[in-house]
């Protein structure tokens, strides 16, 4: 059952640009008997493994932008470490603090969902060469991929790299604080702010998620990763993610948009719910 469940998440992950942890953790808490500690550990290994399994294929197809990753990675890795330190301090000094942050995170995700829902041209935003910022121009951060639904090669440019770097620094901080891959935040920034086509944004988000792998160490050192839970989960998501990466290549961008919106709505709703649970406003359903 765990294998089948993670196999499905594996297919959705590369298509939606989220690692899978954001889907796995809340649902697994409801349907499996494991404690939330083991679910979080497995969720993180799954998120990273689904990204590792799909990214090489997405790079090869021109969907994941390695140059942009090279620029974002130094900022996001360092801010995610700072986020981890802050997260531990908040938890130690103010035990209820993380629930307020979780609640805020949920509200932010739902706001992003609303903006993406109302925004136009998400599938193929048209960023002209003259709209590119000077950094993107200088580093030649642009690309092209063959879009089967159009039966032609689609080229794209990006814009707003300096301001996006600042936003990604905050995303890294949040990712570190919560031990998340933060794919749900990466996709809207890449798509709405930088003007990347939705399929390129979801694929590049998977690439960014790989930089979160050091967080696995936290769970390993606490003994929260066990073969009995992790191995069936990883096998499911690895096979699913390979299929998902191929689906991501051929699926129509409009469907990608709806899947991303669905995942955002789910993630936002779950975070609000967990925050309210933690603060004692709602009774506990999801544990941890």
């Amino acid at each position: 059952m765990l294998f089948a469940f993670t196999f499905l998440i594996g297919i959705i992950s590369p298509v939606s640009g989220v690692g899978g942890g954001v889907l796995f953790v809340p649902i697994a808490t409801l349907i499996f008997p494991f404690h939330i500690d083991f679910i979080r550990g497995a969720g993180l290994v799954m998120a990273v493994t689904s990204a590792l399994s799909s990214v090489p294929f997405l790079i090869k197809k021109g969907l994941a932008n390695i140059k942009l990753f090279a620029v974002l990675a130094p900022v996001m890795i360092i801010t995610s470490v700072i986020g981890s330190i802050l997260g531990l301090q908040i938890t130690n000094a103010f035990p209820g603090g993380k629930y307020y942050i979780e609640l805020m995170l949920g509200v932010i995700i739902l706001m992003v969902f609303t903006v993406m829902m109302m925004a136009k041209k998400l599938e193929f935003p048209n960023v002209e060469e003259k709209e590119m910022d000077s950094w993107s121009k200088k580093l030649k951060i642009k690309g092209a991929w063959f879009e089967p639904s159009l039966n032609r090669l689609v080229k794209y440019n990006v814009k707003n790299l300096p301001i996006s770097l600042a936003v990604f620094a905050v995303v890294g901080l949040i990712a570190g604080m919560f031990g998340l891959g933060a794919g749900f935040a990466n996709v809207p920034v890449l798509n709405l702010l930088m003007g990347m086509p939705i399929k390129v944004a979801t694929a590049t988000s998977m690439l960014i998620i790989t930089a979160n792998s050091p967080a696995i160490g936290i769970y390993l050192t606490k003994g929260a990763i066990l073969p009995s839970i992790v191995v069936p989960a990883i096998l499911g998501i690895t096979i699913g993610a390979r299929i998902g990466a191929k689906v991501a290549e051929i699926i129509k961008p409009v469907f990608v948009r709806w899947i991303v919106l669905g995942v955002l709505l789910f993630a936002g709703f779950m975070n609000v719910l967990k925050g309210l649970e933690g603060l004692g406003i709602l009774p506990h359903i999801f544990g941890g």
């Binding site: 390695i66 991929w145 063959f146 794209y156």
Partner: peptide, 18 residues
Amino acid sequence: MKDNNKNAAVDKMGLFFG
């Protein structure tokens, strides 16, 4: 912004990374 070539050029460093 669009052409008919099916092969997108992929950076060498991307391929090695992959």
